[in-house]
Structure formats: C-alpha cells, structure tokens
Amino acid sequence: MADKKKTNIILFSGDYDKAMAAYIIANGAAAYDHDVTIFHTFWGLNALRKDEKLQPKKSFMEKMFGKMMPRGANNMPLSKMQFLGMGPKMIKGVIQKHNTVPLPDLIDMAKEQDITLLACTMTMDLLGLKKEELLDDIEYGGVAAYIAEGEDGAINLFI
C-alpha cells in the first residue's frame, strides 16, 4: 500500500497506565497499517529504561535523578491510586485476570510491529539518561523529528 497513514504519539507521562494507553493505541494503529512513531520525552523516557542497574559516568545531580526515576516500564507508578506501590501490584493482577497485555509486553509487541520508538535527546540530557541505559534498537531525535512525522500525521496524540 502506497502512502501509509501516520500515527504519532508523544509520550510525556511516566505513569504506567498512561503509557499503557499510548502503547495500546500505537499497536492498534500499527494493525491499521499506519506508520507509527512514539516520541518519548521527559518522564516518558522511563518507559524505555532498561531494568538492570547500570552505572554510566554521571554528575551528582544526574545520579540523583537516576535514583529517583523508575527503571523501566514495569517499575512505573500509576497516575491514580498509587498507594505507596500497592496500586501497581493490584493493577497488574487485574491486567492478568482480564487477559490484557501488560506494558512491557506491549513495548515488545510495538517493536515486532515495526513501531518506531524514539527518545528525545534534549530531555535525556536534562534527566541525565544515557543511551546505554535505554533499550537497544531505538532511535534518537528532537522536535524536528517529531514535526517531520507529525505534520502529515493522521493521528497526533500527546499523552
């Protein structure tokens, strides 16, 4: 099919539930044969973080940020009903019960469906996140990369 439609999602939020919504829409759009890109910026970058502990060279402030932010999709908090960590445990139980796909699996599926996962380099610098801390096989870019995709996007979302 020539001229595929495009879906572009900006994932700004670092909340598990919001990221899940973003990734469900992205996977759905890919099933519609759209060219799909998810731009991860600010807290949304944490969805791309590897869950292992890595110690790249960092300034004091960057180390503090690194410690305070969740390492990877599975460790992200909920936007509501966090309850000191009980909320995410409960929601993951409910996800399993309803045969819904948990966030880390949605991210794997996005890769299988050739969805472009893009990390915003400017906010990576601000939060002190290094490339080796993020998933492999992702792309890097800035606002121009988003505009280039977004200007002829059929669907553009900010989550």
Binding site: I24, N27, G28, A30, A31, Y32, H98, N99, T100, V101, M109, Q113
Partner: peptide
C-alpha cells in the same frame, strides 16, 4: 479470551 488491542493485532 484476549483483550484489546490483541484481536485486531
């Protein structure tokens, strides 16, 4: 038994 978005995917 599978939920959104799996049937369409």
């Amino acid at each position: 038994g599978i939920a959104c978005p799996m049937p369409v995917v």
